[in-house]
């Protein structure tokens, strides 16, 4: 297979890899760069477990070609915490018991981050819309919705 070079930043760090032409961003992140916070739940674009943020927008990494991300800024849940200091969403998911098996959690957190980055004070409907492409089989979604709303409240308090 033809290999193509691709360079991007991942959670602020420069990365450069050769990937197979046609390889997905999901494969590049998990298998080349070793960021396994990005989960492969369906590889069909139907579960949201692989969601990442590319240049500020939520993307399903299983449907995104790695070579199209040349020069992009990519964010994943694996790079969200600063040392031991968790992002407000991570704190809210943890303290709000919004994870059970944990497999959907990184994708959920990315979907939520993409929402809060553009809409720091979302309504419940906004939250529901934002995570409607992410499947969770354990929680029944309500704790996740509550955690995202709690993170938004925590953000507004710290900004005030």
């Amino acid at each position: 297979m033809k290999k193509v070079p691709v360079q991007f930043t991942l959670n602020g760090e420069d990365k450069a890899e050769f990937v197979e032409s046609g390889a997905t961003l999901l494969k590049a992140l998990r298998e080349k760069i070793g960021d396994t916070s990005v989960k492969a739940g369906c590889q069909q674009g139907t579960c949201g477990s692989c969601a990442v943020i590319v240049d500020g927008e939520l993307r399903l990494s299983c449907l995104t070609l790695a070579e199209r991300c040349d020069g992009a800024a990519i964010e994943t849940t694996g790079g969200l915490a600063h040392g031991e200091v968790l992002h407000p969403l991570q704190r809210a998911f943890n303290e709000g018991f919004a994870t059970q098996c944990g497999f959907c959690t990184p994708g959920m957190i990315m979907a939520a981050k993409a929402l809060l980055d553009g809409n720091p004070q979302p309504s419940r409907e906004d939250v529901v819309e934002a995570i409607s492409g992410n499947i969770c089989r354990c929680t029944g979604y309500e704790p996740i919705i509550q955690a995202i709303l709690a993170a938004a409240r925590a953000n507004s308090l710290s900004a005030a």
Partner: peptide, 12 residues
């Protein structure tokens, strides 16, 4: 709090 939840929310 669940001992495994920190790993879940950090993707680790």
């Amino acid at each position: 709090l669940r001992s495994d939840a920190l790993g879940h929310v950090t993707g680790t």
